[in-house]
Design a protein around this nucleic acid. Structure first.
Lengths: 200, 200
DNA sequence: CGGCGTTTTGAGAGAGCTCAACATCGGTGG
DNA sequence: CCACCGATGTTGAGCTCTCTCAAAACGCCG
């Protein structure tokens, strides 16, 4: 969720890089936890699959983000990690991180802060899921992902991906965006969306 | 999310207790963060209110749980905390905790572990919200909140509260429970629900 | 050019939401 | 002790909204 400025040089040295093809699985639910990953390139999504086969997207990690931080304290992964695009990840073994956590208070604090940010992000997503109207949910998404000017939103990946992240079917998202564009609320461009109304 | 075994005695000493009436607000969104709270008695819920007035329940803290941990690293609260019942909370000032975090690696590690557990809990709730069928969502809730025997679930508070936690209207929850009882899937008793089918 | 995945649009149905009425329970006060 | 009151619990009916299934246009890449 943030550039890993909290990873000290000594830890970085112990890291191993790994390349993933699009669609490749990094780890599965139930597998023993080995450590955490930092995304170097590409996108990796964290999902859980329920028995009906639906895929719930828990997180989409972009370069600089880390994956599976929580699993440091757990013996098995609780989600599947799948590369959305071709990707490169850096792997940090669990034992080294835990050792650093015990020895280096600065690192421990930074790590805790990172987890705290994750908690807030997840809460925001939970709040988003409470919005029933597709249009309001899209508005919320746009508001959160808008660039500092609050005027444009860069779309991460395909609209289909965005739909999954929003918990909508892709059809519902297409329709909603089309309506919003027709109402002049947004303007669609290649890979970005311009907000015409300022976000309250 | 866990008994605060990670709070050292010296920190405990600095804590202040406070009593809340049912419905009373502990803190509001946007207020400057003062520290975190431990629930001693009663229940306090963490909510966000969207512009349509809907209340999204982010967490229901019971005795032993802590509230607003993430806000240690943030200058303002991001949710409202409201007592669901009459409650007693213990307040731990931010400055003391941060000091301890820097000085005591054991504490920092325990704190990080607690946050990691929160992250997993939130992900589970996010997954739950992805389930569209009311019945499946209730099943999921029952499975998660079942006691070790996996046979009975103690209802925390009113069914209305549970409905809010599940992201359902209370009518939908009532109906679903009635149907499940009619189908022999559950048995309803005062304050508890017995699962008749074992959870897969 | 052909194939595959994304993007679009259409029509229908199901499921939960909304509004509404009523029952039930617990507490309060006369 | 009983009437009253508010909140919870319960059930009914209609409606809206998204999901689902379907089909077609578009864009990208080999």
């Amino acid at each position: 969720m943030s550039a890993p400025d909290w990873l000290s040089a000594s830890i970085r040295a112990a890291a191993v890089e790994r390349t993933l093809a699009a669609g490749q699985t990094l780890f599965c639910t139930g597998a023993r936890t080995a450590g955490l990953y930092e995304i170097v390139k590409g996108k990796v999504r964290l999902v859980r699959v329920d028995r009906s086969g639906r895929e719930a997207v828990l997180q989409v990690a972009a370069p600089g983000d880390t994956l599976a931080e929580a699993s440091l304290f757990s013996s098995a992964y609780h989600c599947d990690a799948i590369a959305s695009t071709a990707a490169v990840v850096r792997f940090y073994p669990k034992a080294i991180l835990i050792g650093e956590l015990e020895r280096n208070p600065k690192f421990a604090q930074a790590f805790a802060a990172m987890l705290a940010r994750q908690v807030m992000t997840l809460r925001t997503r939970l709040e988003q899921r409470n919005i029933h109207s597709a249009r309001d949910r899209v508005r919320y998404y746009l508001a959160i992902n808008a660039d500092p000017s609050g005027r444009t939103v860069a779309l991460s990946g395909t609209l289909k991906d965005v739909a999954a992240e929003l918990g909508l079917t892709h059809e519902a998202l297409y329709r909603t965006l089309a309506e919003m564009a027709a109402d002049g609320e947004i303007e669609r461009r290649k890979g970005t969306i311009r907000l015409m109304k300022s976000v309250t």
